[in-house]
Design a protein around this nucleic acid. Structure first.
Lengths: 151, 151
DNA sequence: TCCTGGAAGTGGCATATGCCACTAAATCAA
DNA sequence: TTGATTTAGTGGCATATGCCACTTCCAGGA
């Protein structure tokens, strides 16, 4: 692989983001492995926990995730008894999600491992730099790419 | 979804990275859609193009991607005739990859769209900020999370 | 009240990624 | 040369994500 190959790759925001996501995902997944959960699942359980019995649409919006994708991702967690859903009382179209007692226990377990992964990440990358990175990522996540750029 | 929910999410480097990746991926995918290729495929074609008939392992290493994942991702591209593989002359274990003429033409086509997506991204986010982001992501991609942090 | 349009999810299909077990091929050691 | 070890890929299985078509419901307007 030539030098040009790497530099060319390095110009694409999307490619670099994906590449870094794979890398970091591996790190978090490695550390969380003993729990039997992936980092994506830990994140989702956490999101459900802190949300107040959130509706699926609300979760999807928060995570900037396709609603159907969320449904798919939720299935293994429901199958394994960590999560359960129930219809909203006021609007029967809305399906709300919550952790089961078992899911809550699992979340406690996996969050301990998450702290290890998170700590190691910040030790290696630097707490400041990590915070700045998250801030930029959050900012980007809020952007509307369809809007005409200031003008 | 409460405010706490969002702030909690915002602390996890991995979650924020994934979330931003989904968002940006949607942007690039949207713009590339007329070509019939996803942004991941465009990136892979490009990587194959600039590499000198790269071996699968070399591509996987560059992209920090699992070798088998690369193999899977390559399949649709091979099926559609954009890419072909051939055994390395010196080491028969090694499988090299190159674009077909059709693949090269498709790459030309999709790169035009990529430039549009890339440009719009940089217009909205800012050229400087985008460059800094890519630099940080590249740095992180190079980290060894197993190594003890300087000490 | 009835009809129409929009909102919330589901299911199917396809790609993106990873892990693990396994095969083939090259290497190294005895 | 032969047997153990390492390297490069493949295939199967499972999760991660998205798009699209379709169903169910709620909200408004005639």
């Amino acid at each position: 692989m030539s030098k040009e190959a790497v530099s060319g790759l390095a110009l694409c925001n999307n490619a670099m983001l994906r590449r870094a996501t794979r890398k970091i995902g591996q790190h978090y997944d490695d550390v969380l492995a003993p729990s039997g959960l992936k980092a994506t699942q830990q994140g989702l359980l956490y999101q459900i926990h802190v949300g107040n019995e959130p509706a699926m649409g609300a979760i999807a919006t928060s995570l900037i995730m396709d609603l159907s994708a969320l449904g798919h991702t939720l299935k293994p967690l429901i199958r394994d008894g960590y999560v359960e859903t129930f219809a909203d009382a006021a609007d029967r179209r809305v399906k709300r999600v919550r952790l089961t007692p078992r899911g809550l226990a699992k979340l406690d377990e996996v969050m301990k491992l998450w702290q290890v992964a998170q700590q190691r990440f910040e030790d290696v990358v630097g707490k400041e730099k990590a915070a700045r990175l998250r801030a930029v990522l959050d900012e980007i996540a809020a952007v509307d790419f369809n809007e005409t750029p200031a003008g």
